[in-house]
Nucleic acid binder design. Structure first.
Lengths: 126, 126
DNA sequence: CTTAGTGTAATAGTAAGATAGTACAGTGAC
DNA sequence: GTCACTGTACTATCTTACTATTACACTAAG
């Protein structure tokens, strides 16, 4: 999976967010080994330093831990997945509402717009 | 209105977005003069060059036009407001759905989450 | 022990955003 | 004409994200 970054935001942040998404989805369950720094850097066509910075950030936030010579792993905290899911989703929802409210959009229209986008996306899958 | 920037995104982009929001809301109707470069720079505690860059960007996108010695103005294109409103809102909705879908969230939950956030916000206004 | 793979650290260089300061060009009011 | 405002342009400097490269410390497998 090569993948496109938002050029206007630091890559290391976007990598961290992607790791968290994989954890929430269950692709990276607690205890699992994450891709190594060099491995992920090659996959994303990015410098290893950038990946390492992302991992350090995640370690500081209690998401990962690292073992020299072995790799980095998802923490085994049972509350982790739920916490991440809740944090990310709530932030996304809040951001959406903040943005459209700043346009003067009504709650009803804000809800309708989301429903429409979701519906269009579903029907475009075939 | 002093106002806080997202430190992880270029300020000039955020200024441009705020101008567009003001246009959509009607605070800056077509034909209206925008704050001068120096004026807005002072208001936002930002360098005049940064504001100028935002204005240039908006001029390239057909949102503003400038007259030396007079100021910058919102274009009088009758479709402008609707176009901006549609663009910004649709992008916001799409981004929200992309984000939560990447967590594995269902359409129903995505809609419920938005409804909850909007409701909480309304009831916190008093 | 050797080897290959891991995380970690340090250095140097590049590019972009932002600041500071100055200067020039056009407009309108006096 | 003068003055005060506008947009516009340019240079220099700083900071940060990112790249490139090298090196070291640790672990597991052979």
């Amino acid at each position: 999976m090569t993948w496109d970054f938002d050029r206007n935001r630091p890559i290391y942040l976007q990598i961290g967010e992607e790791i968290c998404r994989r954890i929430v989805r269950g692709d990276l369950p607690p205890g699992a080994r994450t891709p190594s720094v060099r491995e992920l850097a090659a996959e994303l066509r990015v410098n290893p330093n950038t990946v390492q910075r992302a991992y350090q950030e995640l370690e500081r936030n209690g998401v990962l831990f690292a073992r020299r010579g072995q790799g980095s792993f998802v923490r085994e905290d049972p509350a982790l997945v739920g916490r991440l899911r809740q944090q990310i989703a709530a932030a996304a929802a809040r951001r959406y509402w903040t943005e459209v409210a700043a346009l003067g959009m009504s709650p009803e229209e804000a809800r309708r717009l989301i429903a429409g986008v979701i519906h269009d996306d579903k029907s475009s899958l075939r």
